[in-house]
Every structure is written in structure tokens, then in C-alpha cells.
Simulated assay, not measured.
Amino acid sequence: MRSTCPDTAARIASARPLPHIPPMLKLTPILLAVLYALAMYRFSAWRTARELDARSSELADARLKRLTDRMAEALDLPRIRVHIYEIAPVNGLAAPDGRIFLTRGFYDRYRAGEVTAEELASVIAHEMGHVALGHARRRMIDFSGQNALRTALAMVLGRFLPGIGVVVANTLASVLAARLSRQDEYEADAYAAALLTKAGIGTGPQKSLFDKLDRLTAGRGGVMPAWLMSHPKTAERVRAIEELEARWAAVTVE
């Protein structure tokens, strides 16, 4: 009986076809990432709504109501409801269900005279822009998707870049998230500028508030590079509004 030499056996073994991998198995990681993103979205929406319900109440302020009534009239709405979210940081929030929130910290700055009613109205207009443009819901979906992307990238890059793959994946996901967030902010600023102008309040309070935000938020905007910031820099936001005003003026003249 003839024996096969080792070299020949190796060539025969290497020539054997690879086992067939069903297409569904190839797509399994992608499907799992999509399902994970959907589950995260549902959970985040539920958790956010529960937190806001437990720690907020409707705002009752006569001076602010006069301004929100003017904006409601400009939008042909019966009224604009605003809620106070009982946390200290200075911020505004548009919830996925369409509700508008001001934090207690922001409202306290208004009550202390550091922020005018018109400036606070510009925050409400900005958050209404997020709702009208679908940002609130999209942000939560994006956040869930980015978590799934972050996990998938970490798994893939971890094979090729042991030790730093996870760091690279987190950085890439953070850059993407920041860019999407900045674009949303510009769009909401433009919406607010148009609404404030139509309501007769004007963009002056919007721009003056931007100049105060760095101080009100303890200068956090200047700590990290622009490409990692979730909000555009103050000067860029003001410039974008002034460019809008210039275009509107040009159209009026024509």
C-alpha cells in the first residue's frame, strides 16, 4: 500500500473547499446590532419619560407665558406648555414625546436676573425647533445606534489593534455623535431665529444669551476641541444667525 508523502497530503488538504457559510449567519452581527439599537432606544425612551415625570411640573410664570403666547400665535397653536425639570445644571430639553423643559437651574438664573424673560423664551423656541424638526426622537435613536456601532467597532478593531481597539472605537463614535449633535443645534437655532422674528421678539435675546452661556455653564464649551463638542462654539452660532438675518433682509429688499 502506497503512502502519501507529507507535501502531497498538505496540498490535498489545502485544496479542499471551505465549508459554506449561510448568508444569514454572515448577517447575524449586523442584525444583532440593529436589535440592540432598537432595544436601547425603547429602554432609553422609557427611562427618560419616567425620570421627567417624576422630577418635573408645568411652569407657571406670567411674564414668560406672555412671550410663549406670542410664539404660539405665530405658530397658530392654542398654547405652548413648558415644564420645569428639577435639576441644578443650566439647560433646556426637548423630550422624545414632544414636551419642552427648562431646568430648575436655568429658571433660577432667570429669577435672579441673570437671564431675561426674552432670553429664556429663546431657549424655549430653540427646544421647540428640536421637536418640530424631529431631533428629540432622532437623537435617542442615534444614541442607541451609536452604542451599537461602538460595540461592533470595538469587537472588530480589537482583533487588529489589541489594547487600543476599544479606545479607537470610542473616539470614532464620539466624533460622529458630536458632529450630528452640532448639526441639530444649528438647525434648531435657525428655527428659533425664524420663530422669534415672526413673534416680534427678535433674535437679539437669542444672541445675547449665547454670550452668557459659557459663564452660566462654567465655561465648559472651551475645554474640548470643536470636533468633540456636542454644541457649536458661541461665535459660530451667532455668526450663523446673523447670516440668516442677512439673507432674510436681502429677500425683503428684493
Rank of each mutant, 00 (worst) to 15 (best):
E73R: 10
P78K: 09
R81V: 10
V82I: 12
Y85H: 10
I87S: 04
I87C: 07
A88S: 14
G92E: 07
L93T: 01
P96A: 01
G98W: 00
I100H: 02
I100L: 15
L102K: 06
L102N: 05
L102W: 08
T103P: 00
T103D: 03
Y107D: 04
D108W: 07
G113M: 06
V115K: 09
T116Y: 13
E119N: 06
L120T: 00
E127F: 03
M128Q: 15
G129H: 06
V131A: 15
V131L: 10
L133Q: 12
A136S: 10
R138F: 05
M140L: 14
M140W: 13
N147P: 01
T151I: 11
L153R: 04
L153M: 13
A154D: 04
V156Y: 14
R159L: 15
L161Y: 11
L161T: 11
G163K: 07
G163V: 07
I164R: 11
I164A: 06
G165Y: 00
V166S: 11
V166D: 15
V168A: 12
A169H: 11
N170R: 07
T171Q: 15
T171V: 07
R179G: 03
R179L: 12
S181T: 06
R182K: 03
Q183F: 04
Q183V: 08
Y186S: 14
D189H: 06
A190M: 07
A190F: 03
Y191F: 15
